[in-house]
């Protein structure tokens, strides 16, 4: 189990990248998604974010995802980095 105890960001707003912000949250996971490919990949992006949070044992966080068309493995990398940066010891 990991708890997000501080606001953390990862990634960039460059094309093919994604900027992820994680914030502490009281209950559950809340994801805000802004993506240039939302129509084509919205559900896939949400799934990637949720899966990485689950793998990292995070079950409550507010996640803000600003996606510039990042590939799935890039999204996963940025979420994981944000978790590493935001979680408590």
């Amino acid at each position: 189990m990991s708890k997000i105890i501080r606001r953390a960001t990862a990634g960039t707003l460059e094309s093919s990248d994604v900027f992820v912000t994680l914030e502490p949250h009281d209950s559950g996971v809340e994801i805000e998604l802004d993506s240039v490919v939302r129509n084509q990949f919205g559900p896939a992006i949400l799934k990637a974010v949720e899966e990485v949070l689950a793998e990292c044992g995070v079950n409550s966080a507010k996640v803000i995802v600003v996606d510039r068309g990042a590939l799935d493995c890039v999204i996963r990398a940025r979420v994981e980095t944000a978790v590493e940066r935001g979680k408590g010891e």
């Binding site: 990862a10 990634g11 990398a77 980095t81 940066r85």
Partner: peptide
């Protein structure tokens, strides 16, 4: 350093 490390790892794993 942390984000590059994870990105390169994922790229090698999936791309």
């Amino acid at each position: 350093k942390d984000s590059a490390r994870i990105l390169v790892r994922n790229a090698m794993r999936y791309m």
